[in-house]
Design a protein around this nucleic acid. Structure first.
Lengths: 219, 219
DNA sequence: TAGATTGTTAATCGATTAACAATC
DNA sequence: TAGATTGTTAATCGATTAACAATC
């Protein structure tokens, strides 16, 4: 295989997928600071990875550096954007207009990166009709019909646990390809639909565990 | 080492730490449904892990099962609570009373599991004095003094990116042992302080990547 | 050119799984 | 007891790292 060649459809390991956003975040920062070159050693130093790991991760997708020089920040950033699929627009529907839903709806970064919230749904009659980030809140009963008329790439679930699976089913039946799940529910979806979870409780429990572990180590 | 013996201070692998909350969540559910026994094979089936992995994970902490029977749900749940450090109370201070902060402050599960928000801070003068979940919102300038008078186990950072490191420094100087970080910042802390991140943007980027990958596979 | 740094290969490390003796 | 399932060991698998030829 030539250096510029792309590996053929090999599944990318979890670990690599987890590090790509970290690279993206840091390259964005370097770029905004006007830095124009960076080596794998410098990236590793800043991000606390080994240089070899960074080069190995990037090599899943191509050859973006130059021997003796390193990487051009602007070019590598553009490549990472391409890898992450950020060069296309993503349409989102958001279900649940509580605090979490509001937080997501009002976070400008998403829109800036092409993640556009097209519609918001909730079950609370008091909220229906309210405008949030330029979007009127609709009743969740309309979700099914909405998805028949408008396609959406990603469904965001910011409902209580009890409602999550039912909402998820409607979203998947309505053709979303990805679910961004903020509820503590463990969702079942059709083959091929991608679920990304933000489990706040799990995160806090990991923190609690490490605190507890640390305490015992110090004893 | 005897079966009941506890492994001595060996660092627990990341993967294991990540699965403990999943076990906890599912055992809690089984317990609330009145199920009283479960085997590693059943757990594996439900959670999509191998039975061997579950037994192996648990064996880091002790022997909680019985040959030919499996695990007693109530007992195993209690053990997992113990492992996670849920049998002690955790005091939290929350910095940032925006949407994310409000979401955290109003999520009853935390309190029920012993994570008590003792104080809330924000920089917005309009919010100061407002009561949230039984807690008056104070000005962030008071954070340092507050921590001198009251100890806290965990500092929750729900501020914009720009403020995060400065808030983190005050929290760490004030003696918190863990940081639960909802900002997109990559925080630097003193040795021994534990940071658990909820990076919403990273999560959405992982989802975007997998959607993009899937699309190329289908091409 | 000489120095630096890539992309990749081989070696190492660690995590997962299969298998099974122990035993409830 | 006979059947079931644990906890653990050994085998396997996959990910990380070290090393280096290629080369800018």
């Amino acid at each position: 295989m030539t250096a510029r060649g792309r590996k053929k459809r090999a599944a990318i390991p979890q670990g690599v997928v987890g590090r790509l956003p970290v690279y993206f975040r840091y390259l964005t920062e370097l770029h905004s600071l006007g830095v124009d070159k960076v080596s794998s050693a410098q990236l590793g130093e800043a991000l606390d990875f080994t240089a070899a790991q960074i080069r190995s991760d990037l090599s899943y997708f191509g050859s973006f550096g130059q021997q003796g020089y390193g990487y051009n920040v602007a070019e590598l950033l553009q490549q990472v954007r391409q890898i992450l699929g950020l060069n296309k627009r993503h349409s989102l529907v958001l279900v649940g207009a509580g605090n979490i839903g509001k937080a997501i709806g009002s976070y400008g970064w998403f829109r800036a990166e092409g993640f556009i919230i097209e519609a918001i749904f909730d079950i609370d009659p008091h909220l229906i009709g309210n405008i949030h980030g330029g979007c009127a809140i609709r009743h969740v009963d309309e979700l099914k019909d909405y998805l028949q008329e408008h396609s959406a790439d990603i469904g965001v679930i910011a409902t209580p646990k009890e409602a999550a699976q039912a909402v998820c089913d409607v979203l998947v039946a309505g053709g979303v390809k990805g679910i961004w799940n903020f509820s503590p529910a463990q969702l079942n979806v059709a083959e091929g639909v991608i679920v990304e979870n933000i489990h706040l409780t799990d995160s806090l429990l990991r923190l609690a565990f490490r605190l507890h572990e640390r305490e015992q180590r110090l004893e």
